[in-house]
Amino acid sequence: MAEISEHHEQIRAAGAQVAALSVDVPERSEALRQRDGIVFPLLSDPDHHVVEAWGLFDPKEKGGIARPATFVIDPDRRIRLRSLDGVASRLHAADLVTYLRASPAGRVTAPPQRRVLIPSLPQMARTLLPALRLTLFGRPRLD
């Protein structure tokens, strides 16, 4: 959210407008807006009707909240881009700006890459195994 906020000018310059949505009541959203200096609307869906209609309601967390996700919606109301922003990977605001600049409304292009924040297991194995082998077998003999 803070990241989107920082890139808001660039998103506007690319011809798009931003709104963010949560199940928080307006007072709570307003506190967040003021704390973080957010300049786009924070929409309130306390009954989570909209969150449910979009298929993003997670009833198991904190009494029911929205799963984080980012959409780009074209003027004909068609979804052009969807990013389900998990813990391991999410869409970065800078990549979103690049995407919006590269693909004007109505033209579907390849979606931007989501950046992986947590390396995959094979990735970790590739990095760690040689080091481990070195530690276990590569030590100079002391005798």
């Binding site: 798009a16 963010a20 199940v23 307006p26 307003e30 967040l32 609307p41 904190k62 959409f71």
Partner: peptide, 26 residues
């Protein structure tokens, strides 16, 4: 929105594409 102003998706789309972010909350 948090200030009480009404916000309708289809109305906003009349002026261009919308980036809609769902977030977990405060």
């Amino acid at each position: 929105d948090s200030t009480g102003a009404r916000w309708r998706l289809s109305t906003r789309l009349a002026t261009g594409p919308v980036v809609l972010v769902f977030y977990r909350g405060y």
